[in-house]
Design a protein around this nucleic acid. Sequence first.
DNA 1: GTTAGCATGTAAGGAGTTACATGATTTT
DNA 2: AAAATCATGTAACTCCTTACATGCTAAC
Lengths: 217, 217
Amino acid sequence: MTRRAEVLDLAVLGLLVDAPMHGYELRKRLNILLGAFRALSYGTLYPCLKALLARGWICESVPADGDPALALTGRRARIVYELTAEGKERFQSLVSHPGPAAWEDERFDVHFAFFARTDATTRLQILEGRRSRLQERVEGVSQSIARTRERRDAYTLELQRHGLESVEREVRWLTDLIDTERASGMTHPPADDTDPPTRGEVTEPGAGHQLPARDEQ
Amino acid sequence: MTRRAEVLDLAVLGLLVDAPMHGYELRKRLNILLGAFRALSYGTLYPCLKALLARGWICESVPADGDPALALTGRRARIVYELTAEGKERFQSLVSHPGPAAWEDERFDVHFAFFARTDATTRLQILEGRRSRLQERVEGVSQSIARTRERRDAYTLELQRHGLESVEREVRWLTDLIDTERASGMTHPPADDTDPPTRGEVTEPGAGHQLPARDEQ
DNA sequence: GTTAGCATGTAAGGAGTTACATGATTTT
DNA sequence: AAAATCATGTAACTCCTTACATGCTAAC
Protein backbone atom coordinates (compact mmCIF):
# COMPACT_ATOMS: atom_id res chain seq x y z
CA MET A 1 0.00 0.00 0.00
CA THR A 2 1.26 3.42 -0.88
CA ARG A 3 1.03 6.51 1.25
CA ARG A 4 -1.89 7.75 -0.83
CA ALA A 5 -3.83 4.57 -0.30
CA GLU A 6 -3.33 4.98 3.40
CA VAL A 7 -4.12 8.62 3.96
CA LEU A 8 -6.18 9.97 1.09
CA ASP A 9 -8.38 6.89 0.92
CA LEU A 10 -9.06 7.13 4.62
CA ALA A 11 -9.96 10.80 4.33
CA VAL A 12 -12.19 10.55 1.26
CA LEU A 13 -13.96 7.35 2.28
CA GLY A 14 -14.41 8.70 5.78
CA LEU A 15 -16.17 11.81 4.54
CA LEU A 16 -18.39 9.77 2.23
CA VAL A 17 -19.53 7.62 5.16
CA ASP A 18 -21.54 10.56 6.42
CA ALA A 19 -23.13 11.49 3.13
CA PRO A 20 -22.68 11.13 -0.64
CA MET A 21 -20.78 14.06 -2.04
CA HIS A 22 -19.27 15.48 -5.21
CA GLY A 23 -15.63 16.35 -5.69
CA TYR A 24 -15.81 20.08 -5.18
CA GLU A 25 -17.54 19.77 -1.84
CA LEU A 26 -15.30 16.91 -0.79
CA ARG A 27 -12.33 19.17 -1.26
CA LYS A 28 -13.83 21.91 0.86
CA ARG A 29 -14.70 19.51 3.66
CA LEU A 30 -11.25 17.96 3.51
CA ASN A 31 -9.64 21.35 3.92
CA ILE A 32 -11.91 22.23 6.82
CA LEU A 33 -11.03 18.91 8.42
CA LEU A 34 -7.32 19.58 8.13
CA GLY A 35 -7.54 23.03 9.63
CA ALA A 36 -8.39 25.15 6.62
CA PHE A 37 -4.86 25.58 5.44
CA ARG A 38 -3.52 22.39 3.94
CA ALA A 39 -5.31 22.89 0.60
CA LEU A 40 -5.74 19.67 -1.34
CA SER A 41 -5.61 20.37 -5.07
CA TYR A 42 -7.99 19.03 -7.69
CA GLY A 43 -5.05 17.46 -9.43
CA THR A 44 -4.84 15.16 -6.41
CA LEU A 45 -8.50 14.71 -5.58
CA TYR A 46 -10.03 13.84 -8.95
CA PRO A 47 -7.45 11.18 -9.84
CA CYS A 48 -8.00 9.76 -6.36
CA LEU A 49 -11.76 9.54 -6.91
CA LYS A 50 -11.09 7.78 -10.19
CA ALA A 51 -8.89 5.24 -8.44
CA LEU A 52 -11.47 4.62 -5.73
CA LEU A 53 -14.08 4.12 -8.45
CA ALA A 54 -11.84 1.61 -10.24
CA ARG A 55 -11.38 -0.29 -6.98
CA GLY A 56 -15.14 -0.47 -6.56
CA TRP A 57 -15.10 1.38 -3.25
CA ILE A 58 -17.26 4.24 -4.46
CA CYS A 59 -19.84 4.54 -7.21
CA GLU A 60 -21.62 7.37 -8.94
CA SER A 61 -24.72 8.06 -6.98
CA VAL A 62 -27.99 8.28 -8.87
CA PRO A 63 -29.90 11.14 -7.27
CA ALA A 64 -33.08 9.10 -7.76
CA ASP A 65 -36.45 10.66 -8.42
CA GLY A 66 -37.62 13.72 -6.64
CA ASP A 67 -34.24 15.33 -6.21
CA PRO A 68 -32.58 16.28 -9.49
CA ALA A 69 -31.06 19.30 -7.76
CA LEU A 70 -28.63 16.98 -6.00
CA ALA A 71 -26.87 16.18 -9.25
CA LEU A 72 -27.44 19.42 -11.09
CA THR A 73 -27.54 22.89 -9.61
CA GLY A 74 -28.16 24.75 -12.80
CA ARG A 75 -24.41 25.02 -13.16
CA ARG A 76 -22.33 22.30 -14.60
CA ALA A 77 -23.33 18.66 -14.03
CA ARG A 78 -22.13 17.34 -10.69
CA ILE A 79 -20.97 13.82 -10.14
CA VAL A 80 -22.03 12.67 -6.73
CA TYR A 81 -20.13 9.75 -5.25
CA GLU A 82 -21.40 7.25 -2.74
CA LEU A 83 -19.76 4.45 -0.77
CA THR A 84 -20.32 0.88 -1.94
CA ALA A 85 -20.51 -2.00 0.52
CA GLU A 86 -16.85 -2.77 -0.25
CA GLY A 87 -16.02 0.86 0.30
CA LYS A 88 -17.56 0.76 3.75
CA GLU A 89 -15.54 -2.34 4.56
CA ARG A 90 -12.38 -0.72 3.28
CA PHE A 91 -12.93 2.36 5.40
CA GLN A 92 -13.74 0.32 8.47
CA SER A 93 -10.61 -1.72 7.97
CA LEU A 94 -8.45 1.39 7.57
CA VAL A 95 -9.92 3.18 10.54
CA SER A 96 -9.77 0.12 12.84
CA HIS A 97 -6.03 -0.52 12.54
CA PRO A 98 -3.08 1.61 13.61
CA GLY A 99 -1.47 1.28 10.17
CA PRO A 100 2.25 1.51 9.36
CA ALA A 101 4.22 3.72 11.74
CA ALA A 102 6.21 5.09 8.80
CA TRP A 103 3.37 7.33 7.61
CA GLU A 104 2.02 8.22 10.99
CA ASP A 105 2.91 11.90 10.65
CA GLU A 106 0.75 12.20 7.56
CA ARG A 107 -2.01 9.93 8.75
CA PHE A 108 -2.55 10.75 12.39
CA ASP A 109 -4.74 13.84 12.11
CA VAL A 110 -7.08 12.27 9.58
CA HIS A 111 -7.27 9.08 11.56
CA PHE A 112 -8.03 10.98 14.75
CA ALA A 113 -10.82 12.93 13.08
CA PHE A 114 -12.64 9.64 12.41
CA PHE A 115 -12.09 8.21 15.89
CA ALA A 116 -15.84 8.15 16.51
CA ARG A 117 -16.04 5.45 13.83
CA THR A 118 -13.74 3.01 15.59
CA ASP A 119 -13.57 1.27 18.95
CA ALA A 120 -11.92 2.30 22.19
CA THR A 121 -9.17 -0.34 22.01
CA THR A 122 -8.02 0.86 18.61
CA ARG A 123 -8.15 4.46 19.73
CA LEU A 124 -5.91 3.76 22.70
CA GLN A 125 -3.50 1.76 20.57
CA ILE A 126 -3.17 4.60 18.09
CA LEU A 127 -2.81 7.31 20.72
CA GLU A 128 -0.20 5.35 22.67
CA GLY A 129 1.76 4.48 19.53
CA ARG A 130 1.77 8.10 18.51
CA ARG A 131 2.90 9.22 21.93
CA SER A 132 5.80 6.78 22.08
CA ARG A 133 6.99 7.86 18.63
CA LEU A 134 6.89 11.50 19.70
CA GLN A 135 8.70 10.69 22.92
CA GLU A 136 11.52 9.20 20.86
CA ARG A 137 11.55 12.41 18.90
CA VAL A 138 11.94 14.36 22.12
CA GLU A 139 15.09 12.35 22.83
CA GLY A 140 16.48 13.11 19.40
CA VAL A 141 15.79 16.82 19.57
CA SER A 142 17.27 17.02 23.07
CA GLN A 143 20.51 15.56 21.77
CA SER A 144 20.54 18.03 18.89
CA ILE A 145 20.12 20.84 21.37
CA ALA A 146 23.03 19.59 23.44
CA ARG A 147 25.27 19.71 20.37
CA THR A 148 24.01 23.15 19.37
CA ARG A 149 24.67 24.50 22.86
CA GLU A 150 28.38 23.78 22.37
CA ARG A 151 28.44 25.84 19.20
CA ARG A 152 26.93 28.91 20.93
CA ASP A 153 24.56 29.56 18.05
CA ALA A 154 21.84 31.45 19.88
CA TYR A 155 19.27 31.54 17.06
CA THR A 156 19.56 27.87 16.18
CA LEU A 157 19.33 27.07 19.87
CA GLU A 158 16.19 29.14 20.25
CA LEU A 159 14.67 27.42 17.21
CA GLN A 160 15.38 23.97 18.55
CA ARG A 161 14.27 24.86 22.06
CA HIS A 162 10.96 26.02 20.67
CA GLY A 163 10.70 22.91 18.50
CA LEU A 164 11.32 20.72 21.51
CA GLU A 165 8.58 22.47 23.45
CA SER A 166 6.19 21.92 20.57
CA VAL A 167 6.81 18.18 20.59
CA GLU A 168 6.58 18.03 24.37
CA ARG A 169 3.29 19.87 24.23
CA GLU A 170 2.03 17.31 21.69
CA VAL A 171 3.02 14.51 24.06
CA ARG A 172 1.08 16.14 26.88
CA TRP A 173 -1.96 16.47 24.66
CA LEU A 174 -1.81 12.79 23.81
CA THR A 175 -1.38 11.87 27.45
CA ASP A 176 -4.52 13.82 28.36
CA LEU A 177 -6.43 12.08 25.58
CA ILE A 178 -5.21 8.67 26.70
CA ASP A 179 -6.23 9.36 30.27
CA THR A 180 -9.65 10.46 29.19
CA GLU A 181 -10.14 7.47 26.90
CA ARG A 182 -9.16 5.13 29.70
CA ALA A 183 -11.28 6.89 32.29
CA SER A 184 -14.57 7.67 30.70
CA GLY A 185 -15.15 5.17 27.95
CA MET A 186 -14.84 8.11 25.58
CA THR A 187 -18.29 9.37 24.99
CA HIS A 188 -16.51 12.48 23.85
CA PRO A 189 -12.93 13.78 23.85
CA PRO A 190 -11.55 15.89 26.68
CA ALA A 191 -10.98 19.60 27.04
CA ASP A 192 -14.33 20.44 25.49
CA ASP A 193 -15.55 23.60 27.18
CA THR A 194 -19.03 22.16 27.64
CA ASP A 195 -19.58 19.18 29.91
CA PRO A 196 -16.05 17.94 30.65
CA PRO A 197 -15.83 14.15 31.10
CA THR A 198 -15.25 12.87 34.60
CA ARG A 199 -11.64 12.13 35.44
CA GLY A 200 -10.35 9.77 38.08
CA GLU A 201 -12.58 6.75 37.72
CA VAL A 202 -10.57 4.34 35.64
CA THR A 203 -12.64 1.69 33.96
CA GLU A 204 -11.48 -1.22 31.82
CA PRO A 205 -9.97 -0.04 28.54
CA GLY A 206 -12.32 -0.73 25.70
CA ALA A 207 -15.40 -0.60 27.84
CA GLY A 208 -18.29 1.56 26.91
CA HIS A 209 -17.84 2.60 23.32
CA GLN A 210 -21.10 3.67 21.90
CA LEU A 211 -20.77 3.83 18.13
CA PRO A 212 -21.32 0.86 15.82
CA ALA A 213 -17.99 -0.83 15.15
CA ARG A 214 -18.28 -2.82 11.97
CA ASP A 215 -16.57 -6.14 11.49
CA GLU A 216 -12.97 -5.79 10.46
CA GLN A 217 -11.48 -7.16 7.27
CA MET B 1 13.51 30.38 -8.59
CA THR B 2 12.20 27.06 -7.51
CA ARG B 3 11.44 26.01 -3.98
CA ARG B 4 14.66 24.02 -3.86
CA ALA B 5 16.73 27.01 -4.89
CA GLU B 6 15.14 28.95 -2.08
CA VAL B 7 15.34 26.55 0.82
CA LEU B 8 17.98 23.93 0.16
CA ASP B 9 20.44 26.45 -1.23
CA LEU B 10 20.00 28.61 1.83
CA ALA B 11 20.56 25.66 4.15
CA VAL B 12 23.58 24.19 2.39
CA LEU B 13 25.32 27.48 1.68
CA GLY B 14 24.59 28.61 5.21
CA LEU B 15 26.30 25.60 6.72
CA LEU B 16 29.29 25.99 4.42
CA VAL B 17 29.76 29.59 5.57
CA ASP B 18 31.00 28.27 8.91
CA ALA B 19 33.33 25.65 7.50
CA PRO B 20 34.03 23.57 4.40
CA MET B 21 32.30 20.21 4.62
CA HIS B 22 31.61 17.00 2.73
CA GLY B 23 28.17 15.67 1.85
CA TYR B 24 27.84 13.09 4.57
CA GLU B 25 28.53 15.55 7.34
CA LEU B 26 26.42 18.24 5.69
CA ARG B 27 23.48 15.88 5.89
CA LYS B 28 24.02 15.20 9.57
CA ARG B 29 24.30 18.90 10.40
CA LEU B 30 21.23 19.67 8.34
CA ASN B 31 19.23 17.11 10.25
CA ILE B 32 20.47 18.42 13.58
CA LEU B 33 19.52 21.92 12.46
CA LEU B 34 16.00 20.86 11.58
CA GLY B 35 15.45 19.09 14.86
CA ALA B 36 16.93 15.68 14.18
CA PHE B 37 13.87 14.22 12.58
CA ARG B 38 13.31 15.65 9.15
CA ALA B 39 15.90 13.43 7.50
CA LEU B 40 17.18 14.80 4.23
CA SER B 41 18.01 11.96 1.85
CA TYR B 42 21.20 11.61 -0.19
CA GLY B 43 19.04 11.51 -3.28
CA THR B 44 18.25 15.14 -2.54
CA LEU B 45 21.53 16.34 -1.15
CA TYR B 46 24.06 15.09 -3.70
CA PRO B 47 22.17 16.39 -6.75
CA CYS B 48 21.86 19.68 -4.89
CA LEU B 49 25.61 19.87 -4.34
CA LYS B 50 26.10 19.15 -8.02
CA ALA B 51 23.79 22.01 -8.94
CA LEU B 52 25.53 24.43 -6.59
CA LEU B 53 28.85 23.39 -8.13
CA ALA B 54 27.51 24.02 -11.64
CA ARG B 55 26.35 27.49 -10.56
CA GLY B 56 29.81 28.24 -9.25
CA TRP B 57 28.63 28.85 -5.70
CA ILE B 58 30.72 26.08 -4.22
CA CYS B 59 33.93 24.39 -5.29
CA GLU B 60 35.82 21.29 -4.32
CA SER B 61 38.13 22.24 -1.54
CA VAL B 62 41.75 21.21 -1.83
CA PRO B 63 42.80 20.12 1.67
CA ALA B 64 46.15 21.75 1.00
CA ASP B 65 49.39 20.51 2.48
CA GLY B 66 49.64 19.24 6.00
CA ASP B 67 46.11 17.98 6.32
CA PRO B 68 45.35 15.08 4.03
CA ALA B 69 43.03 13.63 6.67
CA LEU B 70 40.52 16.34 5.84
CA ALA B 71 39.86 14.83 2.45
CA LEU B 72 40.63 11.22 3.21
CA THR B 73 39.93 9.41 6.45
CA GLY B 74 41.27 6.08 5.45
CA ARG B 75 37.82 5.21 4.30
CA ARG B 76 36.52 6.23 0.96
CA ALA B 77 37.68 9.51 -0.57
CA ARG B 78 35.70 12.47 0.70
CA ILE B 79 34.81 15.44 -1.41
CA VAL B 80 34.97 18.56 0.69
CA TYR B 81 33.06 21.56 -0.57
CA GLU B 82 33.83 25.17 0.10
CA LEU B 83 32.00 28.43 -0.65
CA THR B 84 33.27 30.55 -3.53
CA ALA B 85 33.06 34.33 -3.45
CA GLU B 86 29.90 34.11 -5.56
CA GLY B 87 28.53 31.53 -3.15
CA LYS B 88 29.01 33.88 -0.23
CA GLU B 89 27.21 36.60 -2.14
CA ARG B 90 24.39 34.26 -3.02
CA PHE B 91 23.98 33.21 0.60
CA GLN B 92 24.09 36.78 1.83
CA SER B 93 21.47 37.74 -0.71
CA LEU B 94 19.20 34.85 0.29
CA VAL B 95 19.54 35.44 4.01
CA SER B 96 19.07 39.20 3.76
CA HIS B 97 15.68 39.15 2.06
CA PRO B 98 12.33 37.84 3.30
CA GLY B 99 11.80 35.86 0.10
CA PRO B 100 8.47 34.77 -1.44
CA ALA B 101 5.70 34.32 1.12
CA ALA B 102 4.50 31.25 -0.75
CA TRP B 103 7.32 29.04 0.55
CA GLU B 104 7.52 30.56 3.98
CA ASP B 105 6.39 27.38 5.72
CA GLU B 106 9.30 25.45 4.26
CA ARG B 107 11.83 28.25 4.53
CA PHE B 108 11.20 29.92 7.87
CA ASP B 109 13.05 27.54 10.20
CA VAL B 110 16.17 27.44 8.06
CA HIS B 111 16.11 31.19 7.60
CA PHE B 112 15.72 31.74 11.33
CA ALA B 113 18.65 29.47 12.13
CA PHE B 114 20.91 31.81 10.13
CA PHE B 115 19.56 35.02 11.65
CA ALA B 116 22.95 35.82 13.14
CA ARG B 117 24.20 36.31 9.56
CA THR B 118 21.76 39.06 8.70
CA ASP B 119 20.81 42.48 10.05
CA ALA B 120 18.19 43.51 12.58
CA THR B 121 15.90 45.18 10.03
CA THR B 122 15.65 42.03 7.94
CA ARG B 123 15.09 39.91 11.01
CA LEU B 124 12.17 42.08 12.11
CA GLN B 125 10.71 42.07 8.62
CA ILE B 126 10.80 38.28 8.45
CA LEU B 127 9.42 37.76 11.94
CA GLU B 128 6.58 40.23 11.39
CA GLY B 129 5.71 38.77 8.01
CA ARG B 130 5.60 35.31 9.48
CA ARG B 131 3.43 36.42 12.34
CA SER B 132 0.90 38.12 10.11
CA ARG B 133 0.65 35.02 7.90
CA LEU B 134 0.05 32.86 10.96
CA GLN B 135 -2.53 35.28 12.28
CA GLU B 136 -4.47 34.89 9.03
CA ARG B 137 -4.25 31.17 9.58
CA VAL B 138 -5.76 31.59 13.01
CA GLU B 139 -8.76 33.27 11.38
CA GLY B 140 -9.17 30.40 8.93
CA VAL B 141 -8.94 27.68 11.54
CA SER B 142 -11.37 29.54 13.80
CA GLN B 143 -13.93 29.54 11.01
CA SER B 144 -13.40 25.84 10.42
CA ILE B 145 -14.01 25.22 14.10
CA ALA B 146 -17.23 27.17 13.99
CA ARG B 147 -18.50 24.95 11.18
CA THR B 148 -17.37 21.77 12.93
CA ARG B 149 -19.14 22.82 16.13
CA GLU B 150 -22.44 22.69 14.27
CA ARG B 151 -21.82 19.11 13.19
CA ARG B 152 -21.19 17.94 16.79
CA ASP B 153 -18.16 15.91 15.77
CA ALA B 154 -16.28 15.85 19.06
CA TYR B 155 -13.04 14.31 17.80
CA THR B 156 -12.68 16.59 14.80
CA LEU B 157 -13.45 19.51 17.08
CA GLU B 158 -10.78 18.46 19.55
CA LEU B 159 -8.29 18.08 16.70
CA GLN B 160 -9.00 21.53 15.35
CA ARG B 161 -9.05 23.13 18.78
CA HIS B 162 -5.61 21.70 19.44
CA GLY B 163 -4.42 22.81 16.01
CA LEU B 164 -5.65 26.32 16.67
CA GLU B 165 -3.79 26.44 19.97
CA SER B 166 -0.61 25.34 18.22
CA VAL B 167 -0.82 28.19 15.75
CA GLU B 168 -1.68 30.68 18.48
CA ARG B 169 1.30 29.49 20.47
CA GLU B 170 3.49 30.05 17.42
CA VAL B 171 2.16 33.59 17.12
CA ARG B 172 3.02 34.28 20.76
CA TRP B 173 6.52 32.93 20.22
CA LEU B 174 7.01 35.29 17.29
CA THR B 175 5.64 38.20 19.27
CA ASP B 176 8.17 37.56 22.04
CA LEU B 177 10.97 37.40 19.49
CA ILE B 178 9.83 40.62 17.84
CA ASP B 179 9.69 42.40 21.20
CA THR B 180 13.16 41.22 22.07
CA GLU B 181 14.60 42.21 18.70
CA ARG B 182 13.10 45.66 19.03
CA ALA B 183 14.18 46.09 22.62
CA SER B 184 17.68 44.83 22.89
CA GLY B 185 19.26 45.14 19.50
CA MET B 186 19.36 41.37 19.52
CA THR B 187 22.65 40.38 20.93
CA HIS B 188 20.98 37.07 21.54
CA PRO B 189 17.47 35.66 21.23
CA PRO B 190 15.04 35.64 24.16
CA ALA B 191 13.96 32.93 26.58
CA ASP B 192 17.47 31.60 26.98
CA ASP B 193 17.77 30.31 30.53
CA THR B 194 21.07 32.07 31.05
CA ASP B 195 21.24 35.87 31.07
CA PRO B 196 17.79 36.94 29.85
CA PRO B 197 17.87 40.14 27.76
CA THR B 198 16.48 43.29 29.31
CA ARG B 199 12.92 44.03 28.36
CA GLY B 200 11.21 47.38 28.49
CA GLU B 201 13.76 49.73 27.05
CA VAL B 202 12.73 50.12 23.45
CA THR B 203 15.47 51.44 21.22
CA GLU B 204 15.28 52.29 17.55
CA PRO B 205 14.62 49.20 15.41
CA GLY B 206 17.74 48.14 13.59
CA ALA B 207 20.04 49.74 16.08
CA GLY B 208 22.86 47.80 17.57
CA HIS B 209 23.37 44.71 15.49
CA GLN B 210 26.75 43.28 16.11
CA LEU B 211 27.51 40.74 13.42
CA PRO B 212 29.09 41.64 10.07
CA ALA B 213 26.31 42.27 7.58
CA ARG B 214 27.79 41.87 4.14
CA ASP B 215 26.71 44.01 1.23
CA GLU B 216 23.58 42.73 -0.45
CA GLN B 217 23.35 41.75 -4.07
C1' DG C 1 32.57 -12.83 11.04
C1' DT C 2 29.08 -9.69 11.12
C1' DT C 3 27.00 -5.47 12.14
C1' DA C 4 27.31 -0.55 12.24
C1' DG C 5 29.11 3.54 10.50
C1' DC C 6 31.48 6.10 6.89
C1' DA C 7 31.08 7.83 2.14
C1' DT C 8 29.30 8.88 -2.70
C1' DG C 9 26.27 8.48 -6.03
C1' DT C 10 22.20 6.98 -9.63
C1' DA C 11 17.62 5.24 -11.34
C1' DA C 12 13.03 4.57 -10.78
C1' DG C 13 9.04 5.72 -8.96
C1' DG C 14 5.67 8.08 -5.84
C1' DA C 15 3.07 12.11 -4.67
C1' DG C 16 1.55 16.32 -5.33
C1' DT C 17 1.24 21.27 -7.35
C1' DT C 18 0.47 24.63 -11.03
C1' DA C 19 -1.33 25.90 -15.05
C1' DC C 20 -4.40 25.08 -18.44
C1' DA C 21 -9.02 24.02 -20.65
C1' DT C 22 -14.00 24.89 -20.28
C1' DG C 23 -18.03 27.07 -19.04
C1' DA C 24 -22.30 28.43 -16.19
C1' DT C 25 -24.16 31.45 -12.41
C1' DT C 26 -24.27 34.62 -8.73
C1' DT C 27 -22.71 38.59 -6.50
C1' DT C 28 -20.78 43.17 -6.50
C1' DA D 1 -19.40 44.46 -16.73
C1' DA D 2 -16.25 42.27 -13.73
C1' DA D 3 -15.13 39.22 -10.23
C1' DA D 4 -16.05 35.41 -7.41
C1' DT D 5 -17.83 30.91 -6.93
C1' DC D 6 -19.27 26.66 -8.71
C1' DA D 7 -17.63 22.46 -11.13
C1' DT D 8 -14.69 18.87 -13.53
C1' DG D 9 -10.75 17.35 -15.38
C1' DT D 10 -5.75 16.77 -17.72
C1' DA D 11 -0.73 17.51 -18.74
C1' DA D 12 3.50 18.98 -17.47
C1' DC D 13 6.48 19.65 -14.14
C1' DT D 14 8.79 19.74 -9.44
C1' DC D 15 10.43 17.63 -5.73
C1' DC D 16 11.53 14.07 -2.96
C1' DT D 17 12.14 9.17 -1.26
C1' DT D 18 13.47 4.39 -1.77
C1' DA D 19 16.24 1.09 -3.39
C1' DC D 20 20.21 -0.05 -5.47
C1' DA D 21 25.38 -0.09 -6.45
C1' DT D 22 29.92 0.09 -4.29
C1' DG D 23 33.32 -0.58 -0.90
C1' DC D 24 36.15 0.55 3.15
C1' DT D 25 36.97 0.44 8.48
C1' DA D 26 35.92 -0.07 13.33
C1' DA D 27 33.71 -2.29 16.91
C1' DC D 28 31.46 -6.24 18.97
